[in-house]
């Protein structure tokens, strides 16, 4: 049974102010198997976040159905951990309270929450910043708090919206490795949105390349490369060339459409 199933999803944003509707997602069907690591690749504004928001339950599709673990999605829930494009931390809570927010909702005692948070804080390399407030963190540090917070849910499905975009190259590589290790250990399903072809090829078991707006799935590419991935190997680069070509074609069609 597929872990995430999107059936003929269409999303139209009604724009009452400008009297113009925007077709963001156009008839997308996609199945993500359990324990898969799917990377969603597409240009800015093509509807990646929108798709993720519908799986998370923040947005309802205009048409079509989303099911997760066999059950139709009708709202957000802790079975799907989300790492947002902006970190979205509670500014009034210190780092460790943000990481352990879920446990606060479950009514855990403070000392227990503190202990549970520490493991994840260490995992994202923020030891020593437990008592800092979000206003005192850099963009990349906030993003890592958001990642720790989602991992602590220990969810069946992790949805990540360009989580590493704000990180430097070294931290990004460390975090990518860490994420793959967590995914292998916890046997969860990951949907990972990114702009970067390299990142998609380093992380994913499959890559879904999306078209420009309105978003459709242009092509699904299965990656059977051994891990850790060799970013200089010939098969890696074959895939990369192929995907870059798709993106280039997509861009050309987009420009022609604009001229016509």
């Amino acid at each position: 049974m597929a872990s995430i199933d999107l059936q003929n999803i269409t999303k139209i944003f009604r724009d009452a102010k400008r009297k113009r509707d925007l077709l963001a997602i156009d008839n997308v069907s996609l199945s993500v198997e359990k324990n898969e690591f799917l990377c969603l690749l597409g240009s800015s504004g093509c509807g990646k976040s929108t798709l993720l928001n519908m799986i998370a339950g923040f947005e309802k599709p205009t048409e079509g159905t989303v099911t997760v673990g066999g059950k139709p999605v009708d709202g957000p829930g802790a079975d799907r951990g989300m790492v947002f494009q902006q970190a979205n931390l509670m500014p009034w809570l210190p780092v460790w309270e943000n990481v352990a927010f879920h446990l606060r909702l479950k009514g855990w005692r403070k000392a227990d929450r503190r202990d549970a948070a520490q493991e994840y804080i260490d995992m994202v390399g923020l030891r020593g910043f437990e008592n800092h407030f979000p206003a005192e963190l850099s963009g990349g540090m906030s993003q890592r708090v958001g990642i720790a917070r989602a991992l602590l849910l220990n969810p069946q499905v992790i949805l990540m919206d360009e989580p590493f975009a704000a990180l430097d190259a070294q931290t990004k590589m460390d975090m990518q490795e860490e994420l793959v290790a967590i995914w292998q250990k916890q046997r969860c399903t990951v949907v990972f949105v990114t702009h970067s072809v390299d990142e998609a090829l380093v992380l994913g078991t499959r890559v879904a390349v999306m078209t420009s707006r309105p978003g459709r799935i242009r092509e699904l590419i299965a990656l059977d490369l051994p891990r850790p991935r060799d970013t200089t190997g010939p098969r890696f680069n074959d895939h990369k060339r192929h995907i870059l070509n798709l993106i280039r074609e997509e861009g050309m069609q987009q420009r022609q459409a604009a001229v016509a």
């Binding site: 829930g77 802790a78 947002f84 902006q86 979205n88 931390l89 509670m90 927010f101 879920h102």
Partner: peptide
């Protein structure tokens, strides 16, 4: 977005009011 983040972590409406909206 903070309300979204909290409901992603399983907050009920009452918890949203107490732990997010009020602060």
């Amino acid at each position: 977005n903070l309300i979204r983040a909290a409901s992603m972590m399983g907050a009920t409406e009452q918890q949203l009011l107490r732990h997010v909206v009020f602060p």
